[in-house]
């Protein structure tokens, strides 16, 4: 264990903040989804890091990471289906232009 735990945690924090920036600044719905994926990856790095450094005998961290994978896969499948459906009906996936409820 040559690497201190802090390095992994800072890496995960960096990845999370980059993902957050992507979610907040993108106009394209698919771009926002990509930001969310980055954030979920950062969470997984944290889970695995804590598992490895704090209690590697019980595999709680890995189990939680697997649940995050499952949720991410489900989220992307439904999210992209929504994006395609919206694109088919309104010919755009720019989130600012999808404002039917405002009018």
């Amino acid at each position: 264990m040559a690497i201190p735990i802090n390095w992994f945690l800072v890496l995960a924090a960096g990845l999370f903040c980059i993902g957050l920036y992507g979610v907040l600044s993108r106009r394209n719905a698919i771009g926002i989804l990509m930001g969310i994926e980055l954030m979920l990856n950062a969470v997984n790095i944290n889970l695995i890091t804590f598992w490895r450094y704090i209690n590697p005998v019980k595999l709680t961290g890995q189990v939680f990471a697997i649940f995050v994978f499952t949720v991410a896969a489900a989220e992307v499948a439904v999210g992209l289906a929504l994006v395609i459906a919206i694109y088919r009906n309104r010919d755009t996936v720019i989130v600012e232009e999808i404002d039917l409820l405002k009018e």
Binding site: G14, Y21, R26, L38
Partner: peptide, 8 residues
């Protein structure tokens, strides 16, 4: 991190 920055 570089690739993530490029993504966003």
């Amino acid at each position: 991190l570089g690739a993530a920055l490029a993504v966003v």
